[in-house]
């Protein structure tokens, strides 16, 4: 078990380092400095700015300082554009929002997706099954940036039930559309994966043994079939997490929820590199952390992995 964890960490740490280095080098290689504006600043001012932000040092030193300050102080440095705000402050402001609707979306996608998938598999070739398959095929072509306008069109413009954007501290009317828009396609994928793996497991030899023992169907499904049927779902959770954290950019952008995605897009339009990098590295770090959790979950379910 420990060696398994160690092996996973052996991938996780280089992943983060590669991410940091690549993004820093990208930024360093960018044509034009971060303080280039329409009106050229006097060279002395530029030099002062560069010194203030440490941009006059060689690349390697810059990266080293950057990584060191992240590791020791969790400090991503100052923003170039938002005056007087550090990247940390921006993240601290936006992250709770993203985390809130992100967590709800993740929960919704997993709970609804898994339940729908199990129900479809257990009632194979019934109306319920066809419904589940239909939903999961349909939702494949409805990524978040398609869902968001459609939902707004229906629930805000036509029915007038829900506000078309904003956050208001996360009150539920402001939460509904972001959560649905973000979770639908993942919910559909999870339902599809659960259904097909559950169908496969229900045909397994050990399920026949369980049925031959005279166990009620409920117990056969939930006690014997659920764990193995969930393994492919667990493997999918990592990519789903990446997809959701990426999708949150669209949610923040479209619904003006004020999460980190909104800062990310603004920074991208304004070439505010420290914020871009900070958000990218944060997303990468969360992904790596989440993947570690998924690996542990996988090992917990499948006893044959714990070596």
């Amino acid at each position: 078990m420990l060696s398994y964890l160690f092996k996973r960490l052996a991938v996780a740490v280089p992943t983060l380092l590669v991410l940091v280095i690549v993004s820093y080098v990208l930024m360093y290689a960018a044509p034009g400095g971060p303080f280039d504006t329409e009106r050229a600043l006097p060279p002395e001012v530029m030099a002062n700015l560069d010194r203030k932000y440490g941009l006059d040092q060689p690349l390697v030193v810059q990266i080293w300082r950057y990584v060191a300050s992240i590791v020791t102080d969790f400090d991503f440095g100052p923003s170039f554009r938002y005056q007087d705000q550090t990247v940390n402050e921006i993240i601290a402001q936006g992250f709770p929002v993203t985390l809130t609707y992100g967590a709800w979306s993740f929960l919704a996608a997993v709970l609804v997706g898994v339940s729908l998938g199990i129900a479809a598999a257990v009632h194979h070739n019934t109306l319920l099954d066809y419904f589940a398959v239909g939903v999961s095929i349909g939702a494949q072509v409805l990524p978040n940036f398609v869902m968001a306008p459609i939902l707004t069109l229906v629930f805000t413009l036509w029915l007038g039930w829900l506000p078309g954007g904003g956050w208001q501290g996360g009150e539920w009317p402001y939460l509904v559309m972001p959560v649905i828009a973000l979770s639908t396609s993942f919910m559909a994928s999870i339902a599809r994966i659960t259904r097909s793996s559950m169908l496969e497991v229900l045909n397994a030899s050990f399920i026949r043994t369980a049925r031959a023992k005279g166990l009620p169907r409920r117990r056969v499904v939930f006690r014997h079939a659920l764990k193995p049927a969930l393994l492919p779902v667990v493997s999918y959770l990592g990519p789903a997490f990446v997809g959701m954290i990426t999708g949150s950019v669209v949610i923040d952008f479209f619904f003006a929820t004020g999460g980190i995605g909104q800062f990310f897009v603004n920074s991208a339009l304004n070439r505010d590199y420290p914020v871009l990098m900070g958000v990218t590295i944060l997303a990468g770090g969360l992904t790596v952390l989440f993947n570690l959790l998924v690996d542990l979950l996988y090992a917990w379910i499948d006893p044959r992995i714990r070596y």
Partner: peptide
């Protein structure tokens, strides 16, 4: 039906299958 059969399986009639490598649930 399945419920009535489940009262008979194990108690009246039981079965052992061909391949012991796959007939036991590997996750329990």
């Amino acid at each position: 039906d399945e419920r009535e059969l489940n009262r008979i399986r194990s108690r009246r009639i039981a079965m052992v299958f061909q391949d012991p490598m796959t007939a036991l649930n590997p996750y329990l």
